[in-house]
């Protein structure tokens, strides 16, 4: 087991000899992206020439708000279709593959705004994560003996994971009664039920109270240590430092830097990207019209992110009141 507070040593990741530059090739890539471009009404949200994600390590995808991280993430996981570009997963093309097929192939994702299924119990949430369930077929569902034994096995696995994520006491509660942080944990545990090769986490720490952050980070590292590749999106540089073996920086849709965290903070491109963005000036109506036309997609995405966070906060507040 590596030290709890630090990434793997650079040699253990296999990335020791890799140059610290955007689009560099890696020794054992699980995911390879080429020429991926996505525009919203003339505004280019994502424009990535080449990116390889190394197998078995934690890759942090960072960038200032509006850099196109979430759009890129949606493109990778099949939730959005690129205008151009190719992606391979384990060497096979996954262009145009639906998200549910990707999940079955071993690529699962979580969402920035947690998608716990509120009116299902925590254990049912977990069981949904399991793949190839016989009882998920309409006709077999009617013949209970056909799926009963498999369902029990799944339940055992789910209970073990719940215990590991310290959610076992909530097992039979509605997922809607969990706190924001617990939902993040549930979503991660649920994703693990599908026994993925790669797990994509969209801002796993957003809206989580500091006490839970450490526990979440610990879980992420455990995933890597089990051999699962991890990619996560984050805009807070500090979170990235603690856990990522490799950092990819996006700005204005493109990859501007790659390397271990220590090399990233001193990179001039990254400093410019973080300091150069300024997006909170209030707009008046005439500017607004112009702005809608010009920045529509990018600004909208930003606001979506902010709103997601507001929702998260609201939700937590509500739970406090209850």
């Amino acid at each position: 087991m590596p030290d709890d507070a630090a990434p793997m040593t650079i040699d253990a990741t296999g990335l020791g000899a890799v140059a610290h530059e955007p689009g560099v090739s890696k020794p054992d890539p699980i995911l390879v992206v080429d020429n991926m471009r996505r525009a919203f009404g003339g505004i280019v949200a994502v424009d990535v020439d080449h990116l390889e994600i190394q197998r078995g390590v934690i890759t942090g995808l960072i960038g200032p708000n509006g850099a196109g991280k979430t759009t890129f993430f949606n493109l990778l996981t099949g939730f959005d279709a690129p205008d151009t570009g190719h992606t391979t997963f384990n060497g096979a093309s996954i262009d145009g593959v639906s998200p549910h097929v990707l999940a079955r192939k071993g690529m699962v994702r979580t969402f920035q705004l947690t998608k716990s299924l509120t009116k299902l119990s925590v254990i049912d949430n977990m069981k949904l994560g399991a793949q190839r369930q016989r009882g998920e077929n309409f006709f077999r569902a009617l013949a209970v003996p056909m799926w009963r034994s498999q369902d029990r096995e799944i339940e055992e696995r789910a209970d073990a994971l719940l215990k590991r994520f310290k959610l076992d006491h909530m097992r039979d509660e509605y997922a809607g009664t969990l706190s924001g942080g617990q939902r993040k944990l549930l979503e991660m545990a649920r994703a693990l039920m599908s026994q993925p090769e790669i797990i994509m986490l969209d801002e796993p720490m957003a809206g989580v109270n500091p006490a839970l952050t450490q526990s979440l980070l610990g879980h992420v590292k455990d995933l890597r240590d089990e051999g699962i590749s991890v990619v996560f999106v984050e805009h807070d540089m500090d979170v990235v430092r603690d856990i990522s073996d490799w950092v990819v920086v996006m700005a204005e849709g493109a990859i501007i830097a790659e390397g271990p965290h220590s090399t990233i903070t001193s990179n001039q491109n990254v400093i410019d990207a973080y300091l150069g963005t300024h997006h909170d000036a209030p707009l008046d109506l005439s500017e607004e019209d112009q702005r809608i036309a010009e920045d529509e997609a990018i600004v909208a995405e930003e606001i979506d992110e902010d709103i997601d966070i507001v929702h998260e906060i609201d939700e937590q507040k509500r739970h406090h009141h209850e």
């Binding site: 209030p282 707009l283 109506l285 607004e288 529509e296 606001i303 709103i307």
Partner: peptide, 13 residues
């Protein structure tokens, strides 16, 4: 503006 993006319109006053 509201029809186009309600959240954005709201946040711009």
């Amino acid at each position: 503006a509201v029809a186009d993006n309600r959240d954005l319109a709201e946040s711009s006053g």
